[in-house]
Structure formats: C-alpha cells, structure tokens
C-alpha cells in the first residue's frame, strides 16, 4: 500500500478513537449540568412524583453508563435519537427525531460556512502572497493593519457596523438573514451576504498572516536564493518555489478557521437571526434538551477532526518526502 494511503487510514482510525473519547467527555459534562429537562418543563412547583414519573418516561432514571451506551449504540447505527422538546409530563408526545431538527440547521450552517470560505480563503491567500511579495511596503502595512483591525473587534460589533453601513446608510443588503428551506439560491445568497461578509472579516486576518509568514519564512532558504540566481522573477520565486513548500502550515490554519465557521458562529447567527446550528444548540442547552445538545456537540467535534485530518492530508501530499519515499 502506498504510504500516503496507509497514513490517511491511520489518521482516520485515530480520528474515530478521538471522536469516541470526545463523546465520553460530551456525555459526562452534560450529565454534570445542573437541573434537567423535567425541571425545566415542570418548573419549581412540580411534585416529586410527577418529576420522577416524567424522568422515568424520558429514561433519565437509568444509570449513566447505560444511558451512555444506549446513546452511543444508537449513534453507531446512524440514529441521533429523539428530542425531548414536545414531550410533556401528561404523556402527550409531539417530539421529533433529532436528525429532523438538526439537518436543516446544519445545512444552513454549512451553506454560510461555504459561502464565507469561498470569499475568505482565496482573499486571504491572495493577500498573504502579495504582502509576502511586497513585504514592508505601504501595501503590506495597510493590508496587515486593516485585517488586524477587523479581527480585533468582537464579531457582533463588526456585524452591527456592517448593518449600519450596508443595510441602513446604504441599503444594499438586508439586515435579517432569515433564510427558509424553499428559498431560491439567488435570494438565499442575497440574504446571507452580510453574515458571510462579517465572518470573512473575522477570519481573513489569521489565514492571511499565516500565509505571509509561512512564505517569508521560506524566503531565507538556500533554494530560494538559488532560484533568484537562476533569474526567476520575484513573482515566480514565490509562486513556484516558496508556495509549494508552504502548504502544510497554511492548510492547518485554513482548516482551523473553517472549523470555526461551522462551530463558533452562534453570535453572528443571533445578530442576523440566521437559523444555523449554533442557535439550535444554545436553545437546546437552555431547555436541557439533552439529545439535541449531544448531537450538536458530536457534529462539532467531528467537524474539527475531519477538517484537521484534511489539513494533515494536504500537508502529506504536498511533501514530496512523504509522497515519494526514497
């Protein structure tokens, strides 16, 4: 087997093991949350009998290890479980499968993340490469200062500034991004523009600075001087000689930021009333809807692991030492 394939398989295996441990941590930490769903629904006034009966119906009376194995066993077969919300102590059950709750929200989040990534990643690479090429120039300083400024503000602040400028003063985009499932793509893009722009401003600095640093770090290498002395133009020195060796650190930072776009954007979702998975999770935590919280947490963890795996793979395939062993 080619060493790259075996390395990838090995990393996938490690990822699965990591995910298993993460599931333990998720389960344990949610068990440690004060209060539970029954108290949240029934309130302080409920009698102990009612609470106990409701707990029994939800399966909360079972020992923790059994609840964990029930949950993880169901996950392994692709079943995320059933939400608590919609259930009541009277036995009326209007609950929905977790998958039905999570799927549309996850889709929305992935849509916003992809749209942001499509703008931010090429922009960051372009800025990173050009600032490396023109380092210490006015352009370099300006680009660095601007991106640093946007990353230094809290995201909600950036969001409100954009709303003030692009929705109020110059009404180009809507300030609400309340997308729905049946919305046509054009309108969806239009509605999502401001949150995507906000997130772009938040993540571009990190990726751009890493690209710039990774390239500049390589410019001191003897093979870069060799390329110069072969008469290669400054642009090609960077594009053909530095960049191919800089992908590993750049990919790591991009993966990190893409993961953030999936798991960390709840504040931006709230500002723009965007129906993403972050809001779903926060609501579920408030109502102690444990199956939904656990499902979201697990999705977040899997996103991190997968994107980092992808960055590792990029690091491997762009390294000829690993791709073409002796």
């Amino acid at each position: 087997m080619h060493p790259v394939v075996s390395t990838v398989l090995q990393r996938l295996g490690l990822g699965a093991i990591t995910l298993f441990f993460v599931s333990l941590i998720i389960f344990a930490s949610i068990s440690m949350l004060p209060g539970d769903f029954t108290q949240a629904v029934l309130g302080q006034a409920a009698t102990e009998e009612t609470v106990a009966a409701f707990r029994k119906e939800l399966g909360l009376d079972l020992p923790a290890w059994q609840r964990y194995f029930d949950w993880i066993g169901a996950i392994a077969t692709g079943d995320l479980g059933t939400s608590f919300s919609g259930r009541s102590a009277s036995g009326v059950d209007r609950s929905r499968p977790v998958a039905d709750l999570v799927a549309p929200r996850l889709w929305n989040t992935l849509f916003l993340a992809s749209m942001t990534a499509l703008i931010a990643v090429p922009l960051a690479l372009f800025l990173g490469i050009t600032t490396a090429l023109k380092r210490n120039s006015v352009y370099d300083r300006l680009a660095n200062a601007t991106t640093l400024t946007t990353i230094s503000f809290p995201e909600f602040f950036v969001a409100y500034i954009l709303i003030v400028v692009l929705a109020s003063i110059f009404p180009v985009f809507p300030s609400l991004a309340n997308v729905t499932a049946d919305m046509p793509l054009g309108e969806r893009l239009y509605k999502t523009a401001l949150p995507a722009l906000t997130l772009t401003l938040v993540i571009v600095a990190h990726m751009m600075r890493m690209t710039r640093a990774a390239i500049i770090n390589l410019l001191a290498s003897p093979y870069i001087e060799m390329a110069r002395l072969k008469g290669v133009s400054p642009t090609n020195v960077i594009l053909k000689h530095a960049l191919p060796n800089a992908w590993a650190p750049i990919a790591t930072v991009i993966a990190f930021n893409l993961a953030y776009l999936v798991v960390g954007v709840v504040v931006v979702e709230v500002v723009f009333v965007y129906p993403g998975i972050g809001q779903l999770m926060v609501d579920a935590v408030t109502s102690r809807d444990i199956p939904v919280v656990q499902a979201c947490a697990l999705i977040f963890a899997a996103t991190y692991i997968l994107l980092n795996l992808l960055a590792d793979v990029i690091g491997i395939v762009t390294n000829p030492r690993l791709l073409h062993p002796r």
Binding site: Y223, E225, M226, G231, K240, P320
Partner: peptide, 25 residues
C-alpha cells in the same frame, strides 16, 4: 535586466546542493 542574465549567461553552483534544490520539484 540582471535576471535575464542570471541562469542564462551566468550560472551559480551553491555549496549545499541538498538545501539548494527545491524539495517540491
């Protein structure tokens, strides 16, 4: 103008060949 000369009419051989070849090509 100098770049046009380098690598066509004047060439350079460096001390550490291992470090002076680009590992990616």
């Amino acid at each position: 103008e100098k770049q046009a000369l380098w690598g066509s009419r004047i060439a350079y051989v460096a001390q550490s060949a291992a470090a002076s070849f680009n590992p990616a090509h």
